[in-house]
Each structure stands twice: as structure tokens, then as C-alpha cells.
Design a protein around this nucleic acid. Structure first.
Lengths: 139, 139
DNA sequence: TTAACACTCTATAGCTACTATAGAGTCAAG
DNA sequence: CTTGACTCTATAGTAGCTATAGAGTGTTAA
């Protein structure tokens, strides 16, 4: 199967497949006489695994770890659990941060009603205030 | 005031100040005889404004719009309101997405208890399932 | 006077996870 | 034998910085 067929089967763009190969997530496939990449079912499976992980917003590094563990089927899988839990924690933290951010934005929005001049705009005025050290810590 | 002093006053790294100048967010300051950047109070104010916006996770493009509006003090500020509301909406959407993601991750976590072999790991098995079209839509 | 030191300058490369080109080559069908 | 669909490599771009190299500036102490 050529790269286009693999792309159709997995819903993954061709460029991205080549990118995953370059990054070592997909093993280099064999090549045709004309130097075209030739894939088999194992590649389909592995690429689907990667895409599933990406759809769960895992980083390529996290996926690399999972792929490594997957390739040693007899090994204890507790590291898989740890990777996943760390990832869940990251997502939870990000949700916390964004929720706090949304609160700040909504109270900022309260500062101004439509139709004022920019000079008197409560939002612009508030935005001109110094930032606290806590707020400066970029999420 | 040299760039180091501005950096200290605002808590913004020196490189970032130069980056903002390059991006047109900060106007190019005057220079000393030895070609050092020399800033005044207006620069401090403007940089604080930018950092406050960034701490609210606004993009540089959004900030550019706000700065433009801020510089025409007599103009109606309703566009400021619109920029802010669009930004709030984006944050709200992202929170929704991440919350759904967290749910998926937690139910994935349920699939495996510690101590199995990788082969039998419920998480790895589940991750090997094909991805639905809906899940493929990367947030 | 000169040496040390802190500060600044430009230019460039790196980060993540792709995406989008350019320009060339491959292969099957009409 | 040419058209068209497909593929190849290499390179640059995205956002918002961060980090480096190698050079110059400016003040102070020996």
C-alpha cells in the first residue's frame, strides 16, 4: 500500500505520515523500485495508535513512551498507567487555569458598556494597570 | 532607561522586549551614542499593557488591535468589547474541549489496573482501536 | 592604563506538531 | 507519447517566545 492509501485508511495527511517517520514514531517502510513508500497492516495499526493518542492531545514524547512499552508485550504496564495519569493531571491543571482566566476576562468585560470613547473605556483602562507577579506566571 | 531596567520594571525578559519591537507592538525607542535602546515612561506603560493582555492569554494579533484602538482615544470603543468577547468565547470553547478530553482520558484510565503485562493492558488495547471521525477533529 | 565586569548589540537557531509550498520523478491509461 | 494522478526530497512557515554566539559599550578598580 502506498502512502496515499495509508493516508485514506487512517485519515492522516500524507505530510504528517512522513513527519511521523522522520520523528521516529513510524518505522521507515520498504520502498518500491521507484522509491515509493510501501506500507503493510502493521503500519496502519501503529499509525492509528498514534492518531488515537494525538486525538487525546498527548505529546509525541508521551506517545513515543507508549509505543516503546507496547513493543515489549511481556513487560509490566504500570508505566503506561503513570504516563496516562500524568497526562490527565496536565489536562486538569490546564482546565483550572483556563477557568480562572475566563473569570478574569468576564470581570474585565464588566468594566465597560458599549459606546464609550476609547479614552474612557473601562477595559482599556483596566488593561493598563500593572500585572501582579502571580498573573505574570504564564500558563 | 536601558533595556535591562525596562525588563526589571516590567518583569518582561529582555529578549521578549526586543521581540515585541520587531513585531511592531513596541515602537522602536531612541538610541544612545553606543546604540543602546533608551526607553521612557510611555514604553513602560505600553509594555505593561501588552504583558497584562498576554497574561490573559490574548494573541499578539488581538493585542495589536487593542493597541491601535488605545492610540485613538476619541474613537468609539465597541470594537474593544468585541475583541474581548471573541476572546472569552475562545477560552470557553477550549475549556469545553478539554473537559470532554478529560472525561475520555479518565474512562481510558479505568480500562486497566496496575501490574498487567503490556500485552493485556486495557489502555494500550483501547488506544489501538480506530479513531472516530469526530475524535480526529483536533481541537 | 588596563583589566575586569556588567551590560548591550545583531543574527541565528531552537521549541511543538504540523502544514504548505517548489521542483522533480514514477507509473498506468488512452 | 502524453496526460494525469501519484509520489519524492527539501525547505519555509505557523505562535510566542527562549537561548545562543560573537562582538561591542561603559564603568570601576588595581
Amino acid at each position: 500500500m502506498q502512502i496515499g492509501a495509508l493516508a485514506r485508511q487512517t485519515g492522516c495527511p500524507i505530510q504528517t505520515i512522513r513527519f511521523y517517520e522522520q520523528e521516529g514514531l513510524l518505522p521507515p517502510p520498504s520502498r518500491s523500485a521507484g522509491n515509493f513508500r510501501l506500507y503493510g497492516d502493521a503500519h496502519v495499526e501503529r499509525l492509528l495508535f498514534i492518531r488515537r493518542c494525538r486525538s487525546l492531545d498527548m505529546t509525541l514524547d508521551e506517545i513515543r513512551v507508549l509505543l516503546r512499552l507496547k513493543n515489549v508485550p511481556t513487560q509490566d504496564c504500570s508505566e503506561v498507567n503513570r504516563v496516562l495519569e500524568a497526562h490527565i493531571e496536565q489536562v486538569a491543571v490546564r482546565i483550572q487555569e483556563l477557568s480562572a482566566l475566563e473569570q478574569q476576562l468576564r470581570s474585565l468585560r464588566e468594566m465597560c458598556s458599549e459606546g464609550r470613547s476609547a479614552e474612557q473605556c473601562g477595559i482599556l483602562c483596566e488593561l493598563s494597570q500593572p500585572v501582579s507577579a502571580a498573573e505574570l506566571a504564564v500558563p
